[in-house]
Design a binder for these strands. Structure first.
Length: 744
DNA sequence: GGGCGATAACTAT
DNA sequence: TTCCAATAGTTATCGCCC
């Protein structure tokens, strides 16, 4: 690209973008970087000679170690199709061949042909600027299906030389042709005496490029070197339609590397280049010269990379390098900026569906969900949440995404106006590795509830730290807001405790297929639970206790909650007359009667285990608490006379009992949830919640006889429940507790 | 204080 | 007349735990 008037090009680009939000943002970023660079320079100047000398010695050890791992035995090829997308378009439309053209859209160009590059039009440039640089520029929309088809043809050629080649993208791949060369040389040795590996490699690669051309009418460039890093640099040396061979010779490599501009190295981009430039490092040999300074200024990972570059080292095994498992999967979309909540929620949901589909198709599930947003001012933010379990369920992703998005909306100054939304899943694993029980079991569901509570509160706490907002308690995501926004309603039902109204419509409308019913059901439970927790408790820390009765780790807000859990556990295993089961069975029988009973005025009968539980207080410094075993062993010995297994478990969905085994019940409930229509299920569950709550309450009233004790308080200031809370709050809290019990 | 998981931002292509 | 992407890996930082 000699003779390019870069000054003129830069001026046109500046004129075209100056004043735009994008440009302003870019300038701001550069200013921030400049500050960092200045700080770095200052730090660099402050080191004494002695410090640098010592750092250099330390680096020498690293260099020795790296050098000892040098392997020059492999012949690696990097093949890169020339201006791939543009080349395909030009091949298929001869009228484009002599014109400056680019593939892309008005928003962004993917590739340009060499005619266009003369005007400064290149990849990653917006189309309108391309037009400014070159008014006659033809912009062709991309045809990915076509590129994929061509790519397959090219890869067929690659496979002839290395069946285990690594495709980096549609137009780029690494090949290890060492074995191919050995075989060829053996086959040819009878004919010629002086076959050296170098000319053989060059000939083989030239032949490969020729085959590609014959097959596709497209040219490729290639680099041949002892490792991937060098091969990549070499493929750029004689572009287009050329190749470059760097022999496996230490001296040749060193001289090749020495004058190589650092920016030519894959992995060193704009920002890293600026960092290094600030220290006077412009070519690779400088990296070695200033290694002491680098050691003092950069992270271990960075200096390791820098030294590898300086030595001309790289990967020599493609399989070890590229066959790493995928670490994340994502999708994102840019749109005309909007602050319309309904639109943003809908978009988010669509993205989640898309991501879920792709994950399902690839057979992967993930555990960490990340929402990415870009404001109309080009500010990029990401918000992540770790899910209770691995999944690729679109509903779970969407629910999580909505929570995070809503939180951003609530914490933003003024309306949140976005131009990009993205969703990403990481911590991936193969869906097949999840084992036979792919559906969430009830047990998992319970743990999911607990974990969601923790994650959510963590997420919010994280945000508090970020924004230092004083209004954070208000920011606790109320999932009850979602349906209102999703349906365009003006009235988010924040704060209302009416499980029958808002949530039901929400999930009904989200529901698309019956097979997803169980997930919806679980989401519903979680959301009901979460919204109430969030509303009443704010984002407080959860604590974990080990229940000596059921043996599970129970996550609770405070000891009172755990107290309640223990009571339930103890009562449940000790109860010979099966009050609980009866109460749940009664639910079904009576479900037509007074389904909307609003009786939340449960009078929790006292649990006079105060003295026993006080011991727990001393363990409060850790997050996991263990109940003194003596205090429960007694209870257990009495209860063992009448274990729950002899009683059987009741399916809360269909009324079938006789499940002697918890896991059997679990499976059955999942099936049940699948079978029934969702809306009906929800109605039933709602009724069951209340009835079982009532039943539990009655049961407790019968069997317990002291006032409840809030043991999170010092014994001298034991409070009666509700004494310091409003009636409504108290009521809601009880619903929460009941739900907790029900789930446990 | 090291190891590690969670989260957010950065960087490269 | 308008008008600057999409995807994924890496790194930094914080808090928790031992």
């Amino acid at each position: 690209m000699d003779g390019l008037d870069t000054n003129k090009i830069n001026e046109i680009i500046r004129n075209a973008s100056e004043g735009s939000r994008f440009y302003l943002h870019k300038e701001k970023r550069q200013q921030e970087l400049d500050v960092k660079l200045a700080q770095m320079k200052e730090a660099a100047g402050s080191y004494t000679e002695d410090q640098i000398k010592r750092a250099t010695q330390q680096m020498d050890e690293m260099v020795l170690e790296l050098e000892s791992e040098r392997d020059l035995r492999r012949t690696v090829v990097h093949v890169d199709m020339d201006m791939f997308y543009a080349a395909v378009e030009m091949r298929d439309d001869p009228s484009l061949r002599n014109k400056p053209m680019a593939v892309g859209g008005p928003g962004m160009l993917s590739t340009s042909n060499y005619a266009a590059r003369r005007y400064g039009v290149r990849a990653a440039m917006p189309g309108f600027i391309g037009k400014k640089l070159c008014p006659e520029l033809v912009i062709v929309p991309p045809h990915f299906d076509k590129y994929r088809a061509v790519s397959r043809q090219v890869q067929e050629v690659f496979a002839e030389y290395d069946p285990n080649f690594s495709a980096m993208s549609l137009d780029e791949a690494y090949l290890d042709i060492t074995d191919y060369l050995h075989n060829s040389i053996q086959a040819l040795q009878h004919e010629s005496e002086d076959l050296d590996m170098g000319s053989m490699a060059s000939a083989v690669v030239a032949e490969m490029r020729e085959k590609i051309y014959t097959k596709t009418q497209l040219t490729a460039s290639a680099g041949i070197a002892p490792n991937t890093r060098l091969a990549k640099v070499c493929s750029d040396m004689n572009k287009p339609n050329g190749q470059f061979y760097l022999p496996p010779d230490l001296e040749r490599i060193q001289s090749f590397i020495a004058t190589l501009p650092i920016r030519k190295v894959s992995g060193i981009g704009n920002v890293t280049e600026q960092h290094l430039n600030a220290l006077g490092i412009t070519q690779c040999s400088h990296l070695m010269e200033k290694r002491g300074l680098l050691k003092l200024l950069f992270s271990d990972t960075s200096i390791h990379t820098f030294m590898s570059v300086a030595l001309g080292l790289g990967h020599t095994s493609l399989s070890a390098w590229t066959e790493k498992e995928r670490k994340s999967i994502s999708t994102e979309t840019t749109f005309k900026g909007t602050s319309d909540r309904l639109t943003l929620f809908k978009l988010t949901e669509d993205l989640c569906q898309e991501l879920a589909d792709e994950m399902e198709q690839k057979g992967i599930v993930g555990k960490v969900f990340t929402l990415k947003i870009k404001t109309t001012d080009f500010q990029v933010r990401s918000r992540a949440q770790t899910l209770g379990e691995v999944t690729h369920d679109p509903e779970i992703l969407a629910t999580t995404a909505h929570r995070l998005l809503l939180h951003e909306m609530n914490t933003s100054d003024g309306p949140l106006s976005l131009r990009l939304l993205g969703v990403r899943m990481s911590s991936l694993m193969n869906a097949a590795d999840m084992g036979p029980n792919r559906q969430a079991t009830l047990r998992q569901m319970f743990s999911k509830v607990a974990q969601s509570r923790v994650s959510l509160s963590d997420a919010v706490t994280g945000n508090e730290n970020l924004h230092h907002s004083k209004e954070q308690s208000r920011c606790m995501v109320s999932t009850e807001e979602l349906p209102a926004y999703l349906h365009g309603s003006d009235e988010p039902s924040v704060g209302s405790v009416q499980p029958e109204s808002s949530e039901k419509t929400k999930y009904k409308s989200l529901g698309k297929s019956r097979s997803k019913n169980h997930v919806k059901m679980k989401n519903l439970l979680i959301d009901q639970f979460l919204s109430k927790v969030s509303e009443n408790y704010g984002a407080r820390e959860m604590e974990q206790y080990e229940c000596s009765v059921c043996g599970k780790l129970v996550k609770v807000k405070n000891l009172t909650e755990f107290n309640n859990h223990l009571d339930f556990c103890l009562e449940n295993s000790a109860s010979c007359d099966s009050d609980l089961d009866t109460s749940i069975t009664d639910v079904k029988k009576a479900k037509s009667q007074n389904a909307h009973s609003d009786d939340y005025n449960i009078k929790w009968k006292p649990v006079n285990k105060h003295t026993e539980y006080q011991n727990i207080q001393s363990h409060k410094d850790t997050n996991t608490h263990r109940i003194p075993t003596e205090s429960v062993t007694n209870v257990r010995s009495t209860s063992s006379e009448c274990s729950s297994s002899s009683q059987g478990y009741l399916c809360p969905v269909c009324d079938q009992r006789n499940f002697s085994d918890y896991d059997l019940l679990n499976k059955h409930v999942d099936e049940c949830l699948n079978k029934s229509a969702f809306s009906q299920m929800q109605r039933e569950m709602d009724v069951q919640f209340r009835r079982s709550e009532k039943g539990i309450n009655e049961m407790l009233q019968k069997s317990l006889n002291a006032e409840p004790v809030d043991i999170s308080q010092p014994s001298s200031s034991i409070k009666r429940k509700g004494s310091s809370r409003s009636k409504k709050t108290e009521k809601v809290k009880k619903v929460c507790n009941t739900l907790d019990r029900y789930l446990s």
